[in-house]
């Protein structure tokens, strides 16, 4: 059957305007079953709007979308029982206990009494929330609250989970545990659409879509995306990195510089390939500016470089470049 390979989410030139502003602009997207698909982009780049459209909470102004085979937003009602949604902020009831919140969520999704009890017990044990079962949700730390929200959103075993910045403001260890749970769910066949600000989380996604001003500016696996910048990233070590940063910032050879401790992380301008000659030229530039014995070494690109490169080249760049297939 072709149904098994049909994408879980399929959007074609999906757009949404708020007045004159285009929050999402002619977006194409195809997400395969079992994928953890990341949406990366600055605030206001259309991540939340896209998610809300895919969930049928917001009508698109143009374009079409099919989610789990349902036409959106026309068939949104039929989609609802099959998706789980975690909003940007903790959206459970802080006055209710952990167990009561789960009971509520399970009942809302129409789980029978026996089924409800069984799944809640399972979930409480699987997530470690067991220890807090009668604690009020308000008493939990941010990390545990997010885990509770994820559990509540996935109790009805949805085929698709939509998570809008689920780990914002949560400490690294909790984030790590949260992602372990996501991988477990994905391994069970759940498709996950997740938006994030964190580069370390974005790297964990199977595939990523980078959004800017509602447009898709990059799509691919994290490796493919960073591979595209191969050779354009170097590290510079000099005696006084603060003034070197000021000096290099506007140099034509360089797209962007950022300081990490005593090291400068340099993204070379577009077209540069980071050959030996380029590195030597960069060292010469520094020496000419009066910096003594600069060390310039190539360095693997990370997602932040991808992000920065995309943001910098935006005005002149057509939207479809940097689409790398997995």
């Amino acid at each position: 059957m072709t149904a098994s390979v049909e994408p879980v989410i399929c959007a074609r030139s999906l757009s949404r305007s708020f007045g004159a502003r285009r929050a999402v602009d002619s977006l194409d997207l195809a997400i395969a079953p079992g994928e953890i698909f990341g949406l990366l982009g600055p605030n206001g780049s259309g991540k939340s709007t896209l998610m809300r459209m895919l969930l049928g909470l917001l009508a698109p102004t143009a374009g079409t979308a099919r989610v789990l085979g349902y036409e959106i937003p026309a068939e949104a009602e039929r989609l609802r029982p099959r998706v789980g949604y975690m909003t940007q902020h903790f959206s459970l009831y802080t006055e209710l206990s952990v167990e009561e919140n789960l009971q509520f969520s399970a009942a809302i999704f129409g789980l029978g009494r026996a089924e409800r009890a069984r799944r809640i017990e399972e979930a409480l044990h699987a997530t470690g929330l067991d220890a807090y079962r009668s604690a009020r949700a308000a008493e939990l730390s941010g990390g545990w609250q997010q885990r509770l929200a994820l559990t509540a959103a996935s109790l009805h075993e949805p085929k698709l989970l939509v998570l809008d910045e689920p780990t914002a403001g949560v400490d690294p260890q909790s984030r790590r545990m949260f992602w372990e749970r996501l991988f477990e769910l994905a391994a069970q066949g759940t498709t996950i659409l997740v938006s994030t600000h964190y580069m370390d989380e974005a790297v964990r996604c199977h595939r990523l879509c980078i959004l800017r001003e509602g447009r898709r500016v990059a799509l691919g696996t994290p490796t493919a995306l960073t591979h595209d910048l191969h050779g354009r990233v170097v590290e510079v070590e000099v005696s006084n990195p603060e003034s070197a940063l000021m000096a290099l910032r506007d140099h034509p050879l360089i797209a962007s510089v950022a300081q990490f401790g005593k090291v400068l992380h340099v993204l070379l301008a577009e077209g540069q390939t980071g050959t030996e000659a380029t590195l030597r030229e960069l060292a010469r530039v520094l020496e000419a500016l009066g910096f003594e014995q600069p060390a310039v070494v190539p360095c693997p690109a990370n997602l932040e470089d991808v992000f920065v490169a995309l943001l910098l080249g935006q005005q002149s760049r057509p939207t479809s470049t940097l689409v790398v297939d997995a």
Binding site: E77, R80, Y85, M86, T87
Partner: peptide, 13 residues
């Protein structure tokens, strides 16, 4: 205010 309304309208309710 708390965002629970958005959670609710995304459910079959």
């Amino acid at each position: 205010e708390r965002g629970t309304l958005e959670f609710l309208i995304a459910t079959p309710v």
